[in-house]
Design a protein around this nucleic acid. Sequence first.
DNA 1: TAAACGGCTTGATCTACATCAAGTGTTTTT
DNA 2: AAAAACACTTGATGTAGATCAAGCCGTTTA
Lengths: 193, 193
Amino acid sequence: MFDVLLAHIQEKVTLSATDVAVLKSFFIPKKLRKRQYVLQEGDVCKYLLFVEKGLLRMYHVDEKGTEHMIQFAWEGWWMADTYSFLSGDVSEYNIDAIEDAELLMITLDNFEALLLQVPVMERYFRILFQNNIISKEKRLVNTISYSAEEKYTRLAATNPQLLQRIPQNLIASYLGITPETLSRIRKKLMKSK
Amino acid sequence: MFDVLLAHIQEKVTLSATDVAVLKSFFIPKKLRKRQYVLQEGDVCKYLLFVEKGLLRMYHVDEKGTEHMIQFAWEGWWMADTYSFLSGDVSEYNIDAIEDAELLMITLDNFEALLLQVPVMERYFRILFQNNIISKEKRLVNTISYSAEEKYTRLAATNPQLLQRIPQNLIASYLGITPETLSRIRKKLMKSK
DNA sequence: TAAACGGCTTGATCTACATCAAGTGTTTTT
DNA sequence: AAAAACACTTGATGTAGATCAAGCCGTTTA
């Protein structure tokens, strides 16, 4: 159950046997069916989630009812509405499962206790958050600097796994374009090679 | 020279007198004229910057030569191309001064040394990066979920200081729209109230 | 095993915003 | 103090991508 999480942490910092025991004690395991929510708009994001297995998405729904994908997370990824989780304010986002999933969840209180009791976790999360900032910055630059077709080809070049595992309509939403436009772009790219 | 930085850190964590001395020893002060570069596309981002005074911008230039604002930073803000700074790869971004500025700069080696010698700084940067993630997430959601006019009114509501201090054409670029469109939006909003 | 639904495609039409261009006031440079 | 460069505006025109609509599988669901 903790295999993926412990491997992920030990790539970045060293944990003692007691660290591992303490760490395990703070997490709640949870299984999810496809389409099941972990967080719904209007609720507070009570947990920081780690995906041991499966695939989640976080998305925002605008006034017209259109979904906008914020992030995907599969094995080895963390997910939460960071703002809601840390502030305790209600979330404007939704998180649900695209594939059946197994999660490890930690509350804010336990997260803070973990950082105090296992100080190397400060370093682990600092590094994790650094990497998160880098990928968010890249995503933003792609979103504001390129055309629909360029955005797609750049995603295909840098994140091919995403295209294999995630339905096209969700990819379209992630890129900020309609499924129709993505379909046409792909058709055009198929022809040209 | 260190007033703003120390105040900023001590809002989040407690520093001893020796911590403060060590910390100061790791930073290089630098003064910048308006329009002066701190980072140019093609160079490595050698420093993590803290703005003691003045105003900087980080931006990306696409193939057509159009600038896309990634971030602004004034008194009390950190700035760097996080990816280039941490990886040592060349940067695709530019950082320069919109107003004359006074900076405190730290190299990656010194940044890492600082984290080891003053361990509470791990916590400080973890918190800082958390907040950075939150604001980047909000920015992304605004960028992909709303029309040009909505993006502008939302920015005006949440970051009015930005509109007062930063030229309109840079605001337009930050919102991912043209200066002409922003000008028309503002005209329309003026009328309607 | 029939029916309902979800994901993808293709075509016709529409529109928000970009682009191009020209003019005005203001700041910077020489 | 003149000239050049910059920031902003306004108008005319163009277009990438959205929207609307219909049809085609493949897969859940009853």
